[in-house]
Structures are given as C-alpha cells and as structure tokens.
C-alpha cells in the first residue's frame, strides 16, 4: 500500500443512531454516497467503518460535530 492509500483514521457510522439526514454525505462526498432511503453508504463498500485519507480528516471532524444524531465517531488507527 502506498502512503496516501493507508487510511489516516476510520469514520464509524452507528446505524442504530443514524437517521439519514445527509450532513455527512455532503461533507464527505468522496467517501460517502446515499442509499435510496437517504442513509450514508461508503463508496468503497466498507460498510459502517469508512477509511479516511488525511485530507478528509477535517471534513470528517465537522461531520462528527454536526451529525444531528451523534451517530458518527472518528477512530484514529
């Protein structure tokens, strides 16, 4: 794995809390898409633990702070 490809952190989505309000998908469009019910979906199919590049950390932090349902947590690897 090249340096850029190794994830800097993981964004964990707690599906039991998420209400699909779409803030995180707006902030991390490179990483997250929305399913047909509006819930976030990792573009790379990684499910509820989305690997992030260093350049996406800032946006991920905003998403964690702004998620109306407190469904997001950032885990440093």
């Amino acid at each position: 794995m090249s340096r850029e490809r190794r994830p800097a952190a993981t964004l964990h989505i707690d599906w039991t809390l998420c209400d699909g309000r779409g803030l995180c998908t707006e902030l991390l469009p490179e990483r997250l898409a929305r399913d047909e019910w509006g819930y976030p979906l990792a573009r790379d199919g990684s499910g509820g633990d989305v690997p992030l590049a260093a350049s996406q950390l800032e946006a991920a932090r905003d998403a964690v702070a702004l998620c109306p349902r407190l469904a997001l947590t950032l885990r440093k690897d």
């Binding site: 699909g20 309000r21 779409g22 803030l23 998403a63 702004l66």
Partner: peptide
C-alpha cells in the same frame, strides 16, 4: 427546518445546522 434533512434555499444541510 433542518430536522427535515433537506438543504434550504441552496444552503447545504451542514450550513443550515451551523
């Protein structure tokens, strides 16, 4: 309004929340 999960008048959802 932001509870609807929609953007508002061109403002993205996170801006409405901010």
């Amino acid at each position: 309004v932001t509870r609807s999960g929609r953007p508002l008048l061109g403002l993205p959802r996170f801006s409405v929340t901010l």
